[in-house]
Amino acid sequence: MSTNTLATCLIWLAALFVTAVFVCLLADIISQGLTGLSWSYLIEPPQDAGRAGGIGSIIVSTGLILLVAIATSAPLGLATAILLTEFSTQKSTFAQFVERSLDVLSGIPSIIFGLFGNAFFCIYLGLGFSILSGGLTLACMALPILIRTATEGLRAVPNDYRLSAAALSMTRTSALIHLLVPAATPALVAGLMLGIGRAGAETAALIFTSGYVDRMPDSVMDSGRALSVHIYDLSMNVAGGDAKANSAALVLIILLFVINSVSSFLANHWMHKRIIHL
């Protein structure tokens, strides 16, 4: 057998192996999670440390944490992206500094964000174990990805737009508001969804910031348990919690799958359709 045929066989085998392993994994998660999944599971509050009941309050907490994270990081991220694309050249020192910082930020492991969030938001700013602390910590984590996707989206808007707007004697501000940001909207929304997806998958950064309390939160100052933390807690700290953990894992995966699909659809189709005309 020639090297070429051998290589072809090995690569097909590797791909088959990877597919088989992952299909097993997905089938496992789905089949184990499906048994406990029902409408009442989604809306009832957890009982007996999660062994019984549902995940109603936990879904609310997760939603609130993500809402806080997006509400703070989206404006900041958009503003930074606009500065980087529209108000500075790529060579300027300030832009370089901002981009390097974001590169570093995107490489920091989530447990470090957990430590930082605990020290800064919970203790230094006195927010305690709360949904607010957790959301703000996730906002810091989501910033690099939001800024990167928004920057790419804005750079994909043809430069003709900027020149035409300038030739019509429009200020950069109004060109941004009326032309550039609307044209980049699909990419901006896609980035936002991607950020939500990342934040929703996060566990380690939330354990010491938003806490474990599984009651229905009264406000963002309450501690609230995110879905991912719930899965961790059920499987590690609660004897007999595995079945419920599997169901929660399935819910989380479906949620993230939907979010990521919407994101990639927006990025690939909607944006394409709008820009291709030029």
């Binding site: 020149l163 035409s164 030739a167 004697s169």
Partner: peptide
């Protein structure tokens, strides 16, 4: 005043650039 200047001097580009409006 560049904005005033560009109002007095219009420009048409090679490729038409209609805005997404």
């Amino acid at each position: 005043d560049v904005l005033g200047l560009r109002r007095d001097i219009g420009m048409i580009f090679q490729k038409p650039v209609p805005f997404l409006l």
